[in-house]
Design a protein around this nucleic acid. Structure first.
Lengths: 163, 163
DNA sequence: TGTCGTTATTTTACGCATTAAACAATCCGG
DNA sequence: CCGGATTGTTTAATGCGTAAAATAACGACA
């Protein structure tokens, strides 16, 4: 990214306010919805969002997952998952056992009760989300999906600095 | 919200997958960008996002703000702000004094050094954001603003249960 | 076989976030 | 002016998140 002084001068005077405002609005939207989802999960099921997310991952993996699998999928650190799983084992939602073929590995599964509880939560959760987006037309939803897809690509592009 | 059994049956069989996918994409986008901003703030300026946000509020208030003002603006709890301010006073970015007219009230201001530091960070931050959204056309940005505005209203509508 | 590098997990030290309770100062009505 | 409600802030207990160091088990190779 080398610019001569003239180009640089132009760049310096460019206005990026629109992008900044877009980012703030995106953040506001997400925080508004996420806050509401957290509140309802807590109120209705006495569960936190991270626990719900963890159970969602495990619900898709009938044979269980290792702690590493989980932390990759959830895009959080290993140490974080250790604690989350600990508390969910404690509450009877998860089952944890050492792999029979590799004693380093812990295999985590939903218990029967944990799975039933999750399915109940997930069903309501889907309705909450539909309700939150209720004022958007089908076309709005479609357009947003497309534009956010484009945004994701743009962000990834700007993020992953190629060597 | 009272439905007869026929309507209810219909509602039950409705598909809300599109809204759910939209929500997940919105979340992914925001987390991607927010993570990158956090990473760069830390890397370039050794500062966290909450501290940056707090300084941004104070930069707009030359006469300072009370702790309550700050927590309302940032939409976080009072106790949270107490700790944040504590650390930023410690690092010399903020100045904190008891109001002369009401001894309950703490007035928080940016120090001269804190303001200079913030302005430097904010200028770079704006460029990062512009860069992250670089692959979107002006029209894309405009459309996203509009659709997210609509989303915000819809969410608020679904959130604030009117008595 | 023993040791060296890798992989899986836990631990440690910290920061940010919440709610609820405690504390302190002000305000206001009798 | 005094006592109770209100307002502003802090504290306590807890959970989620990180990075970095420690621990443990595996695998491979001389």
């Amino acid at each position: 990214m080398i610019l001569d002084s003239e180009t640089k001068a132009t760049e310096h005077s460019e206005d990026h306010g629109d992008e900044l405002r877009l980012w703030l609005r995106l953040l506001t939207c997400t925080n508004l919805i996420e806050g509401e989802v957290r509140r309802r999960l807590r109120e209705r099921f006495d569960v936190t969002l991270p626990r719900f997310d963890l159970m969602a991952q495990l619900d898709k993996a009938p044979d269980g997952m290792t702690l590493s699998d989980i932390s990759k999928r959830m895009m959080v650190s290993n140490g974080n998952v250790t604690g989350l799983v600990e508390r969910l084992v404690e509450s009877g939602h998860l089952d944890r056992r050492t792999s029979e073929t590799d004693r380093r590995v812990q295999v985590i599964r939903l218990t029967r009760a944990g799975r039933a509880e999750f399915r109940k939560m997930a069903a309501e959760h889907e309705l909450w989300i539909a309700n939150i987006f209720a004022d958007l037309s089908a076309k709005d939803v479609q357009d947003l999906m497309r534009l956010l897809g484009k945004t994701k690509l743009s962000a990834r592009n700007a993020t992953q600095q190629k060597a």
